[in-house]
Write a protein that binds this DNA or RNA. Structure first.
Length: 267
DNA sequence: CAAGAATCCTGTCAGC
DNA sequence: TGCTGACAGGATTCTT
Protein backbone atom coordinates (compact mmCIF):
# COMPACT_ATOMS: atom_id res chain seq x y z
CA UNK A 1 0.00 0.00 0.00
CA UNK A 2 2.87 2.36 0.68
CA UNK A 3 4.00 1.89 -2.90
CA UNK A 4 0.53 2.65 -4.21
CA UNK A 5 -0.01 5.87 -2.31
CA UNK A 6 2.37 8.14 -4.28
CA UNK A 7 0.75 7.51 -7.67
CA UNK A 8 -2.85 7.18 -6.47
CA UNK A 9 -3.47 9.48 -3.54
CA UNK A 10 -5.49 12.56 -4.51
CA UNK A 11 -5.69 11.48 -8.15
CA UNK A 12 -8.79 10.83 -10.18
CA UNK A 13 -9.26 7.57 -12.03
CA UNK A 14 -9.40 8.66 -15.66
CA UNK A 15 -9.79 5.14 -17.01
CA UNK A 16 -10.56 1.74 -15.50
CA UNK A 17 -10.33 -1.54 -17.35
CA UNK A 18 -11.61 -4.73 -15.73
CA UNK A 19 -10.62 -7.67 -17.88
CA UNK A 20 -11.68 -10.43 -15.46
CA UNK A 21 -14.59 -10.04 -13.10
CA UNK A 22 -14.41 -13.59 -11.75
CA UNK A 23 -11.86 -13.23 -8.99
CA UNK A 24 -12.37 -14.67 -5.50
CA UNK A 25 -15.84 -13.23 -5.80
CA UNK A 26 -17.50 -12.17 -9.03
CA UNK A 27 -17.54 -8.43 -9.46
CA UNK A 28 -20.68 -6.59 -10.55
CA UNK A 29 -20.99 -5.57 -14.19
CA UNK A 30 -20.79 -1.87 -13.35
CA UNK A 31 -17.61 -2.20 -11.28
CA UNK A 32 -15.33 -0.32 -13.68
CA UNK A 33 -17.94 2.33 -14.41
CA UNK A 34 -18.43 3.03 -10.72
CA UNK A 35 -14.70 3.55 -10.25
CA UNK A 36 -14.20 5.75 -13.28
CA UNK A 37 -13.98 9.44 -12.49
CA UNK A 38 -13.64 8.95 -8.75
CA UNK A 39 -10.90 10.67 -6.78
CA UNK A 40 -8.92 8.61 -4.28
CA UNK A 41 -9.07 10.62 -1.09
CA UNK A 42 -7.33 8.40 1.45
CA UNK A 43 -5.70 5.01 1.56
CA UNK A 44 -5.39 2.79 4.59
CA UNK A 45 -4.70 -0.87 5.32
CA UNK A 46 -6.78 -3.14 7.52
CA UNK A 47 -5.42 -6.61 8.08
CA UNK A 48 -4.51 -7.87 4.62
CA UNK A 49 -6.89 -5.50 2.88
CA UNK A 50 -5.93 -2.28 1.13
CA UNK A 51 -8.71 0.31 1.31
CA UNK A 52 -8.96 3.26 -1.04
CA UNK A 53 -11.65 5.74 -0.08
CA UNK A 54 -13.24 7.46 -3.03
CA UNK A 55 -14.87 10.83 -3.55
CA UNK A 56 -18.13 8.98 -4.20
CA UNK A 57 -18.12 7.87 -0.54
CA UNK A 58 -17.45 4.35 -1.68
CA UNK A 59 -14.39 2.31 -0.68
CA UNK A 60 -12.35 0.15 -3.02
CA UNK A 61 -11.10 -2.99 -1.27
CA UNK A 62 -8.09 -4.89 -2.55
CA UNK A 63 -6.88 -8.24 -1.25
CA UNK A 64 -3.89 -9.89 -2.91
CA UNK A 65 -4.65 -13.44 -1.82
CA UNK A 66 -1.76 -15.84 -2.42
CA UNK A 67 -0.40 -14.73 -5.76
CA UNK A 68 -1.61 -11.16 -6.20
CA UNK A 69 0.61 -8.21 -6.90
CA UNK A 70 0.13 -4.56 -7.77
CA UNK A 71 2.26 -3.27 -10.63
CA UNK A 72 3.03 0.39 -11.23
CA UNK A 73 3.07 1.45 -14.87
CA UNK A 74 3.02 -2.10 -16.23
CA UNK A 75 4.58 -2.64 -19.66
CA UNK A 76 2.61 -3.30 -22.85
CA UNK A 77 1.55 -5.89 -23.60
CA UNK A 78 0.21 -6.17 -20.08
CA UNK A 79 1.59 -8.98 -17.92
CA UNK A 80 -0.48 -12.16 -17.98
CA UNK A 81 -3.34 -12.20 -15.47
CA UNK A 82 -3.66 -8.44 -15.26
CA UNK A 83 -7.28 -8.39 -14.18
CA UNK A 84 -7.68 -4.69 -13.40
CA UNK A 85 -5.92 -1.66 -14.81
CA UNK A 86 -6.34 1.80 -13.31
CA UNK A 87 -5.16 4.94 -15.05
CA UNK A 88 -5.01 8.22 -13.18
CA UNK A 89 -5.52 11.74 -14.45
CA UNK A 90 -1.75 12.14 -14.15
CA UNK A 91 -1.16 9.28 -16.55
CA UNK A 92 0.14 6.76 -14.03
CA UNK A 93 -1.16 3.24 -14.36
CA UNK A 94 -1.65 0.57 -11.72
CA UNK A 95 -2.29 -3.07 -12.57
CA UNK A 96 -3.74 -5.77 -10.34
CA UNK A 97 -2.13 -9.07 -11.34
CA UNK A 98 -3.22 -12.34 -9.77
CA UNK A 99 -2.67 -15.69 -11.55
CA UNK A 100 -4.49 -17.83 -9.02
CA UNK A 101 -7.37 -15.40 -8.53
CA UNK A 102 -7.53 -16.04 -4.80
CA UNK A 103 -7.30 -12.28 -4.44
CA UNK A 104 -10.34 -10.07 -4.42
CA UNK A 105 -11.58 -6.64 -5.33
CA UNK A 106 -14.71 -5.10 -3.93
CA UNK A 107 -16.49 -1.79 -3.96
CA UNK A 108 -18.26 -0.94 -0.74
CA UNK A 109 -20.95 1.69 -0.65
CA UNK A 110 -19.66 3.35 2.49
CA UNK A 111 -16.55 5.00 3.83
CA UNK A 112 -17.03 3.18 7.11
CA UNK A 113 -15.12 -0.03 6.58
CA UNK A 114 -16.39 -1.46 9.83
CA UNK A 115 -19.74 -1.91 8.08
CA UNK A 116 -18.30 -4.25 5.52
CA UNK A 117 -18.85 -7.93 6.34
CA UNK A 118 -15.32 -8.90 5.24
CA UNK A 119 -13.80 -6.35 7.60
CA UNK A 120 -16.28 -6.31 10.45
CA UNK A 121 -15.03 -9.57 11.90
CA UNK A 122 -11.33 -8.78 11.79
CA UNK A 123 -9.38 -8.79 15.03
CA UNK A 124 -7.21 -5.88 16.15
CA UNK A 125 -4.22 -4.65 14.22
CA UNK A 126 -1.14 -6.38 15.66
CA UNK A 127 0.81 -3.12 15.57
CA UNK A 128 -1.87 -1.17 17.42
CA UNK A 129 -2.24 -0.47 21.13
CA UNK A 130 -5.28 -2.73 21.17
CA UNK A 131 -3.11 -5.79 20.64
CA UNK A 132 -1.86 -6.48 24.14
CA UNK A 133 -0.87 -9.63 26.03
CA UNK A 134 -4.09 -9.26 28.01
CA UNK A 135 -6.14 -9.22 24.81
CA UNK A 136 -4.28 -12.16 23.31
CA UNK A 137 -4.59 -14.17 26.53
CA UNK A 138 -8.30 -13.53 26.63
CA UNK A 139 -8.99 -14.70 23.07
CA UNK A 140 -6.73 -17.75 23.35
CA UNK A 141 -8.30 -18.80 26.64
CA UNK A 142 -10.20 -22.06 26.25
CA UNK A 143 -9.11 -22.57 22.63
CA UNK A 144 -8.15 -26.15 21.87
CA UNK A 145 -6.65 -25.51 18.46
CA UNK A 146 -2.84 -25.29 18.05
CA UNK A 147 -1.47 -21.77 18.49
CA UNK A 148 -0.26 -21.86 14.88
CA UNK A 149 -3.82 -22.19 13.58
CA UNK A 150 -5.16 -19.65 16.07
CA UNK A 151 -2.74 -16.97 14.91
CA UNK A 152 -3.78 -17.51 11.30
CA UNK A 153 -7.37 -16.79 12.30
CA UNK A 154 -7.97 -13.20 11.17
CA UNK A 155 -10.78 -12.85 13.70
CA UNK A 156 -8.30 -13.07 16.56
CA UNK A 157 -5.64 -10.79 15.12
CA UNK A 158 -5.65 -9.27 11.64
CA UNK A 159 -2.87 -9.56 9.12
CA UNK A 160 -0.71 -12.52 10.11
CA UNK A 161 0.01 -15.05 7.38
CA UNK A 162 1.70 -18.40 7.16
CA UNK A 163 5.28 -17.15 7.01
CA UNK A 164 5.04 -14.60 9.76
CA UNK A 165 3.26 -16.92 12.18
CA UNK A 166 6.12 -19.42 11.97
CA UNK A 167 8.65 -16.63 12.37
CA UNK A 168 6.86 -15.03 15.33
CA UNK A 169 6.50 -18.34 17.17
CA UNK A 170 10.19 -19.02 16.70
CA UNK A 171 11.05 -15.58 18.00
CA UNK A 172 8.85 -16.17 21.06
CA UNK A 173 10.25 -19.71 21.46
CA UNK A 174 6.75 -21.17 21.48
CA UNK A 175 5.98 -24.49 19.80
CA UNK A 176 3.42 -24.14 16.99
CA UNK A 177 1.89 -27.40 18.25
CA UNK A 178 1.10 -26.02 21.67
CA UNK A 179 -2.63 -25.60 22.19
CA UNK A 180 -3.75 -22.00 22.13
CA UNK A 181 -5.07 -21.97 25.69
CA UNK A 182 -1.61 -22.94 26.87
CA UNK A 183 -0.20 -19.73 25.43
CA UNK A 184 -2.46 -17.47 27.48
CA UNK A 185 -0.47 -15.79 30.23
CA UNK A 186 3.32 -15.51 30.26
CA UNK A 187 3.78 -16.92 26.76
CA UNK A 188 1.33 -14.39 25.34
CA UNK A 189 3.45 -11.68 26.91
CA UNK A 190 6.39 -12.93 24.83
CA UNK A 191 4.34 -13.55 21.71
CA UNK A 192 2.92 -10.04 21.35
CA UNK A 193 6.29 -8.28 21.02
CA UNK A 194 7.57 -11.14 18.85
CA UNK A 195 4.70 -10.68 16.40
CA UNK A 196 5.27 -6.93 16.32
CA UNK A 197 9.00 -7.30 15.72
CA UNK A 198 8.54 -9.77 12.86
CA UNK A 199 5.92 -7.62 11.13
CA UNK A 200 7.90 -4.42 11.55
CA UNK A 201 10.97 -6.11 10.14
CA UNK A 202 9.04 -7.50 7.20
CA UNK A 203 7.41 -4.17 6.37
CA UNK A 204 10.75 -2.38 6.53
CA UNK A 205 12.19 -5.00 4.16
CA UNK A 206 9.40 -4.57 1.62
CA UNK A 207 7.89 -7.96 2.44
CA UNK A 208 9.01 -11.47 1.54
CA UNK A 209 9.50 -12.27 -2.14
CA UNK A 210 9.06 -16.03 -2.21
CA UNK A 211 7.71 -16.29 -5.76
CA UNK A 212 4.91 -13.86 -6.46
CA UNK A 213 5.26 -10.89 -4.19
CA UNK A 214 6.87 -7.73 -5.52
CA UNK A 215 6.46 -4.15 -4.46
CA UNK A 216 4.46 -1.97 -6.86
CA UNK A 217 7.64 -0.40 -8.26
CA UNK A 218 8.85 -3.86 -9.20
CA UNK A 219 11.45 -4.13 -6.46
CA UNK A 220 11.60 -7.41 -4.61
CA UNK A 221 11.08 -7.55 -0.88
CA UNK A 222 14.06 -8.95 0.95
CA UNK A 223 12.64 -10.20 4.24
CA UNK A 224 12.97 -13.79 2.97
CA UNK A 225 16.66 -13.47 3.77
CA UNK A 226 15.75 -12.76 7.39
CA UNK A 227 13.63 -15.88 7.84
CA UNK A 228 14.87 -17.91 10.78
CA UNK A 229 12.74 -21.03 10.25
CA UNK A 230 10.34 -20.65 7.29
CA UNK A 231 11.59 -22.65 4.32
CA UNK A 232 14.59 -23.93 6.28
CA UNK A 233 13.54 -27.51 6.99
CA UNK A 234 16.52 -29.66 7.91
CA UNK A 235 18.84 -26.72 8.58
CA UNK A 236 20.09 -26.26 12.09
CA UNK A 237 18.39 -23.28 13.65
CA UNK A 238 20.67 -20.32 14.10
CA UNK A 239 19.95 -19.99 17.81
CA UNK A 240 21.11 -23.48 18.76
CA UNK A 241 23.28 -24.57 15.82
CA UNK A 242 26.33 -24.98 18.02
CA UNK A 243 24.47 -27.39 20.27
CA UNK A 244 24.73 -31.10 19.54
CA UNK A 245 21.15 -31.57 20.78
CA UNK A 246 19.78 -29.47 17.90
CA UNK A 247 18.35 -31.85 15.33
CA UNK A 248 17.45 -29.16 12.87
CA UNK A 249 14.37 -27.25 11.84
CA UNK A 250 11.26 -29.38 11.45
CA UNK A 251 8.51 -28.99 8.87
CA UNK A 252 5.03 -30.21 9.74
CA UNK A 253 1.56 -29.65 8.33
CA UNK A 254 -1.08 -27.97 10.46
CA UNK A 255 -4.55 -27.15 9.19
CA UNK A 256 -3.27 -27.86 5.71
CA UNK A 257 -0.43 -25.34 5.87
CA UNK A 258 3.31 -25.87 6.29
CA UNK A 259 4.77 -24.96 9.65
CA UNK A 260 8.48 -24.64 10.37
CA UNK A 261 9.97 -24.65 13.87
CA UNK A 262 12.85 -25.72 16.04
CA UNK A 263 11.57 -28.56 18.25
CA UNK A 264 14.40 -28.08 20.70
CA UNK A 265 14.02 -24.36 21.35
CA UNK A 266 10.29 -23.93 20.91
CA UNK A 267 8.24 -25.47 23.70
C1' DC B 1 -20.22 -23.97 18.49
C1' DA B 2 -15.54 -25.25 17.41
C1' DA B 3 -12.07 -27.44 14.67
C1' DG B 4 -10.42 -29.79 10.60
C1' DA B 5 -10.96 -30.90 5.59
C1' DA B 6 -12.09 -29.60 1.09
C1' DT B 7 -12.26 -26.06 -2.10
C1' DC B 8 -11.32 -22.27 -5.40
C1' DC B 9 -7.09 -21.40 -9.38
C1' DT B 10 -2.58 -21.26 -11.99
C1' DG B 11 2.36 -21.83 -12.13
C1' DT B 12 6.48 -24.24 -10.94
C1' DC B 13 9.33 -27.88 -9.79
C1' DA B 14 10.80 -32.67 -8.62
C1' DG B 15 10.65 -37.25 -10.10
C1' DC B 16 9.99 -40.70 -13.47
C1' DT C 1 10.93 -33.87 -23.65
C1' DG C 2 6.85 -34.59 -21.54
C1' DC C 3 3.81 -36.31 -18.17
C1' DT C 4 2.05 -36.49 -13.13
C1' DG C 5 1.68 -35.11 -8.57
C1' DA C 6 2.78 -32.06 -4.86
C1' DC C 7 2.93 -27.66 -3.33
C1' DA C 8 2.55 -22.43 -2.92
C1' DG C 9 2.32 -15.39 1.16
C1' DG C 10 -5.46 -17.14 1.80
C1' DA C 11 -9.94 -17.55 3.45
C1' DT C 12 -14.51 -19.37 2.79
C1' DT C 13 -17.67 -23.21 3.02
C1' DC C 14 -18.71 -27.75 4.11
C1' DT C 15 -18.29 -31.80 7.53
C1' DT C 16 -17.56 -33.83 11.66
Amino acid sequence: MRGLMPPLLGRRLAAVRLSRPDLRWRLPADFAARLTGQRIDTMIRRGKYILARLSSDETLLIHLGMSGRMILDPPEPLPAHTHLLLETDAGRRVGFVDPRRFGSLDLVATRDEAQHPRLAGLGPEPLSDAFTPAYLSRVLHGKLTPIKAALLDQKLVAGLGNIYVSEALFRARISPRRLAHGVAGARAARLVPAIRAVLEGAIAAGGSSLRDHVQPNGELGYFQHAWKVYGRAGERCEACSCDAACRGIAQIVQAGRSTFYCPRLQR
